[in-house]
């Protein structure tokens, strides 16, 4: 676990700012981009809390896979609806401020107060074995239930597709 105030406050600033932008921006594409940044910032939180595995899962699923699904749905739907024009000035200003603060902290403050090799433990074998024990032994019924739910989702998709094709 990295207990460093600088990293915490940068991640907090990023996650709250991008969450507000993703909710209140009117253009859906910009909103999606800000949501991606929120998910990546959440993976930073997971990492500094000592859960590297969850950070990777969060970045892979929420940061990459889910935006692809949402982007595809935007492509299939928004093009037919009325398009909106919006000024991207607030988003550009926020991105610029965030990049400036990150550069300032990483170049000026971070080298004095943060030593990565001393603080991050690389005991990945223990972490993976604990996760495996949690999934396959301690919470095996929850894992099976989740697998069943995902199977139902896939079967539901297939049924929807078949019924939609017939109609």
């Amino acid at each position: 676990m990295i207990n460093n105030p600088v990293v915490f406050y940068i991640a907090s600033f990023l996650i709250i700012g991008f969450a507000l932008l993703s909710v209140f921006l009117k253009n859906i594409i910009y909103s999606l981009l800000c949501a991606v940044m929120v998910f990546f910032s959440a993976s930073i939180f997971f990492y500094i809390l000592g859960s590297e595995y969850n950070a990777i899962i969060q970045a892979a699923i929420y940061g990459l896979a889910i935006p692809v699904i949402i982007g595809l749905s935007i492509m299939f739907t928004t093009g037919k609806a009325k398009s909106r024009k919006e000024s991207i000035l607030p988003m550009i200003i926020f991105f610029a401020c965030a990049l400036f603060i990150m550069a300032f902290v990483s170049l000026v403050m971070l080298p004095d107060s943060f030593h990565v090799m001393e603080l991050v433990p690389f005991n990945s074998y223990d972490v993976i074995s604990e996760f495996a024990r949690g999934i396959y032994i301690d919470y095996v019924w929850a894992f099976e239930l989740l697998s069943l739910l995902l199977t139902i989702v896939i079967a539901g998709f297939t049924l929807f597709r078949i019924k939609g094709g017939k109609s």
Partner: peptide, 25 residues
């Protein structure tokens, strides 16, 4: 000691992804 919260976050991530896919469809 058992990483319970971490495992639950894995379940919630999978459930959230499935829920989003169903809702978008």
């Amino acid at each position: 000691d058992k990483f319970d919260g971490f495992v639950l976050v894995l379940f919630y991530t999978a459930l959230g992804a499935a829920e989003l896919a169903v809702a978008l469809y």
